[in-house]
Simulated scan of single mutants.
Amino acid sequence: MKLITIKRETKEEKRYTPKMGELLTKVTYIKKAFLSIPIKTIHKYRETYYGEIKDCEACNLAR
């Protein structure tokens, strides 16, 4: 039995970028879990309309 696991989860979220405005995109979270309880988000990224992978730090959640 593993005590620490890494899980990947994808959600749809509203994001705002200055160039495109508000958009609905899929955001993937990579989380570290201890005994199936999430502890920390290691990384989060999103896929753009053109298929590129970008870090979520480039866009804001709200205006």
Results as ranks from 00 to 15, higher is better:
residue 1 M to Q: 06
residue 2 K to E: 04
residue 3 L to C: 06
residue 3 L to M: 08
residue 3 L to E: 05
residue 4 I to S: 02
residue 5 T to Q: 05
residue 5 T to C: 02
residue 5 T to V: 08
residue 5 T to R: 08
residue 6 I to C: 02
residue 6 I to Q: 07
residue 7 K to A: 13
residue 7 K to D: 13
residue 7 K to V: 11
residue 7 K to Q: 14
residue 8 R to L: 10
residue 8 R to Q: 14
residue 8 R to S: 15
residue 9 E to L: 10
residue 10 T to W: 05
residue 10 T to Q: 11
residue 10 T to H: 05
residue 11 K to Y: 12
residue 11 K to T: 10
residue 12 E to S: 08
residue 12 E to I: 03
residue 13 E to K: 10
residue 13 E to R: 06
residue 15 R to D: 02
residue 15 R to L: 08
residue 16 Y to H: 03
residue 17 T to D: 08
residue 18 P to M: 08
residue 19 K to E: 14
residue 19 K to Y: 10
residue 19 K to N: 13
residue 20 M to L: 14
residue 20 M to F: 07
residue 20 M to D: 09
residue 20 M to N: 12
residue 20 M to S: 09
residue 21 G to D: 01
residue 21 G to R: 01
residue 23 L to C: 07
residue 25 T to P: 00
residue 25 T to M: 11
residue 25 T to K: 06
residue 25 T to C: 09
residue 26 K to Y: 03
residue 27 V to W: 09
residue 28 T to M: 03
residue 28 T to A: 03
residue 28 T to D: 01
residue 29 Y to K: 01
residue 29 Y to F: 03
residue 30 I to T: 12
residue 31 K to S: 10
residue 32 K to R: 15
residue 32 K to T: 02
residue 32 K to F: 01
residue 33 A to L: 10
residue 34 F to Y: 13
residue 36 S to P: 02
residue 36 S to F: 10
residue 37 I to V: 15
residue 37 I to E: 11
residue 37 I to R: 15
residue 37 I to N: 11
residue 37 I to C: 07
residue 38 P to G: 02
residue 38 P to Q: 04
residue 39 I to K: 01
residue 39 I to V: 09
residue 39 I to E: 00
residue 40 K to W: 00
residue 40 K to F: 01
residue 41 T to L: 11
residue 42 I to V: 12
residue 42 I to Q: 01
residue 42 I to P: 00
residue 43 H to V: 05
residue 43 H to L: 10
residue 44 K to L: 04
residue 45 Y to S: 09
residue 45 Y to V: 06
residue 45 Y to D: 07
residue 45 Y to A: 07
residue 45 Y to K: 12
residue 46 R to Q: 11
residue 46 R to E: 08
residue 46 R to Y: 15
residue 46 R to T: 12
residue 47 E to L: 09
residue 47 E to F: 06
residue 47 E to P: 02
residue 49 Y to K: 12
residue 50 Y to W: 14
residue 50 Y to A: 08
residue 50 Y to K: 13
residue 50 Y to E: 12
residue 50 Y to S: 08
residue 51 G to Y: 00
residue 51 G to C: 03
residue 51 G to K: 03
residue 52 E to W: 03
residue 52 E to M: 06
residue 52 E to N: 12
residue 54 K to R: 12
residue 54 K to A: 15
residue 54 K to S: 12
residue 55 D to C: 01
residue 55 D to Q: 05
residue 56 C to T: 14
residue 56 C to F: 10
residue 57 E to A: 14
residue 57 E to F: 14
residue 58 A to G: 14
residue 58 A to M: 11
residue 58 A to T: 14
residue 59 C to L: 14
residue 59 C to K: 10
residue 60 N to M: 15
residue 61 L to K: 15
residue 61 L to A: 14
residue 61 L to W: 13
residue 61 L to C: 13
residue 62 A to I: 12
residue 62 A to W: 07
residue 63 R to N: 14
residue 63 R to M: 11
